Amino acid sequence: MRSSQRFPVERLSVALACVEGEWPHDDWPAPDDPHVGRVVRLAPPFRVPGGVDVVVLRCDEPSDALRSLGVTGVPVIVVSPRRDVDTIVEVFRDGAGYLVEGDYCTCMLSSAVVGATVGHTYLSPTACAALREGARRVPTGGDAMERLRGLLSPRERQIMELLSTGLGAQEIGLRLRLSEKTVRNNLSNIYAKLDARGSTDAVLRWLGAAPVLRI
């Protein structure tokens, strides 16, 4: 029987912007990558062409590089050796994904690219740990924070815990044995309950790293 699995009609187009040095993954994307088909390498000053789905920004100073990139309307994933809490939290607040060098594989990079196109802000494990550490440093909303979390059902709280570890909808579904569609439906309900604009805002509210609305 012939396999029913096939590539999307159009695989994603990615722009690679390297501020310092060379892109470290000459083998990415692989010719048989089911999601990423075209890579456009950009040189400074970066001008992102039309038709690009995601920008991958390799840099040593992410905050400065994001400002100089000046891209709007296209999701960005930062790849950087910086692993300090303040830098990672600032990048995450700006809505960009973050992969710490040496803390991810090319399969994870492809997953981050796919996730970015549907609004998921992907974090490598070290970046995720830094975000949680940053949230612990921020005074929580106390009773208001507990009431906010109490708006969520037990299943929605499970999903938020996994979302805040950097997992996307497909990975959360595998962990909880739910379909990806079910996870996305739950996420839509969560965003409405938390008054969040998307996954980044929801995670910040869940971790207490964003202002809590008075309920």
Rank of each mutant, 00 (worst) to 15 (best):
H35Q: 13
A17R: 10
P31M: 04
D26Q: 11
R67Q: 12
V71T: 12
E20S: 14
L42I: 09
V56D: 01
H25P: 00
D60S: 14
A30V: 02
D64N: 07
P29W: 00
V71Q: 11
R38D: 10
W23K: 03
R47T: 13
A17M: 09
V14S: 10
V76C: 01
A17N: 10
D64K: 11
D60E: 13
G37T: 03
D53W: 08
D33R: 02
V56M: 10
T72W: 13
D53F: 08
P31I: 04
P24H: 03
V79D: 00
V56Y: 07
L57Y: 14
D26M: 03
R41T: 07
A43D: 08
V14D: 08
G21C: 00
R38T: 14
P44C: 12
F46E: 04
C59F: 06
P8I: 10
F46V: 09
P29G: 01
E10T: 14
F46A: 11
L12F: 09
V19Y: 05
A30Q: 09
P49H: 05
L12H: 08
V56G: 07
R47P: 01
R67E: 14
V14T: 09
V9N: 04
D27W: 02
R41N: 02
E61M: 03
V76R: 02
D32T: 12
I77L: 07
C59D: 05
P34V: 05
V52S: 06
A17E: 10
L42D: 05
G51N: 02
R38I: 10
R67W: 09
S80Q: 01
R38P: 01
P29S: 03
R38A: 11
P29N: 03
V9Q: 12
P44M: 13
V36K: 09
A65F: 07
V14G: 09
P8N: 08
D33H: 02
L12R: 14
P34M: 06
P8Q: 11
L42H: 11
P8W: 13
W28V: 00
P29D: 01
L42N: 09
P31Y: 03
S80I: 00
C59E: 02
V39C: 04
P31S: 08
G73L: 06
L69F: 10
F46Y: 13
P45H: 13
R11C: 14
R11N: 11
P62D: 03
P8H: 12
A43R: 15
G50E: 09
L12K: 14
V76M: 03
V78L: 00
W23P: 07
G50Q: 04
V40I: 13
E20D: 12
V55N: 10
S13D: 06
E61N: 12
A30T: 05
V79F: 02
D33G: 04
V36R: 08
C59Y: 07
S80V: 00
V55L: 12
V9C: 01
W28D: 00
P44F: 13
A43Q: 14
V36T: 13
H35V: 15
R11Q: 15
V52R: 07
V54I: 07
